[in-house]
């Protein structure tokens, strides 16, 4: 347990990567969009995808975290399992932080009718259709899934190196192409779209959970055999 707190400290020393930079990105994007919405007419709703910048950032944070901290952690005789658990906790905390932030601002945005300018930066139809709890869960799952996907890639890179990354990318592309070809061939696109349309946002988010779990298991398997 003591060692896990060491890992948390190890990560938390980097407040910039976990808190400040993503917060700056989020609010900078928000600021720009808000300014734009003031300048254009207030007659119609303005939708932006600015919030995706944080999601992308969290994804990138997941991708780089192992490369940045794993050699140091193992070098300081930390167990791989402790490193893994500590990193999962810090990723979860960070996800929870940004989920709360977005959740809070979404409610504010709704109350103020889009900051008085009908801007939709945090609050969207469909996405925010569910109950408050569902809205929270949706973002939480989205962040966790994104972070752990990045973490999986990062762990894979640590385990198999550059050669492995190349090979992995090739295999991924190949499988992806085959799947798309098959979907096309059997003309199932329509049913996929209707499946999405028939589910609420949070229901779709629930479907991400088993994937998130797979990423976690995969990352751990990689890190257990990773060397420095």
């Amino acid at each position: 347990m003591n060692r896990i707190s060491g890992v948390l400290k190890l990560h938390y020393r980097d407040k910039w990567s976990w808190i400040y930079i993503p917060a700056i990105i989020l609010f900078f994007s928000f600021g720009v969009n808000l300014t734009v919405s003031f300048l254009v007419s207030n007659q119609e709703d303005l939708y932006t995808g600015g919030i995706s910048s944080v999601v992308i950032y969290i994804f990138v944070a997941g991708i780089i975290v192992v490369g940045k901290t794993f050699p140091f952690a193992i070098g300081m005789s930390i167990r791989r399992i402790d490193y893994f658990i500590g990193s999962v906790i810090i990723g979860t905390i960070s996800s929870a932080f940004f989920t709360s932030l977005i959740f809070l601002f979404a409610q504010l945005e709704k109350q103020t009718n889009g900051w008085g300018t009908r801007l939709h930066f945090f609050y969207f139809p469909y996405v925010n259709d569910g109950t408050l709890l569902e809205q929270f869960i949706l973002y939480m799952i989205l962040f966790l899934n994104t972070f752990f996907l990045g973490f999986l890639i990062s762990s894979y890179a640590r385990r198999f190196g550059r050669k492995g990354m190349f090979l992995g990318a090739m295999v991924f592309l190949l499988i992806g192409s085959i799947v798309i070809f098959l979907l096309h061939h059997f003309e199932v696109w329509g049913s996929i779209f209707s499946w999405f349309a028939s589910h609420t946002a949070v229901q779709i988010a629930y479907w991400l959970m088993p994937f998130t779990l797979l990423y976690l298991l995969g990352s751990y398997r990689m890190l257990r055999r990773a060397v420095i």
Partner: peptide
């Protein structure tokens, strides 16, 4: 184990490295 090629996280200053070591 202190090795010649010991890596530290990029953003760390000396104090960070020592504080983390302290807790490890």
């Amino acid at each position: 184990f202190i090795k010649e090629s010991q890596k530290y996280p990029d953003h760390y200053n000396i104090l960070d490295a020592l504080d983390v070591s302290k807790s490890i």
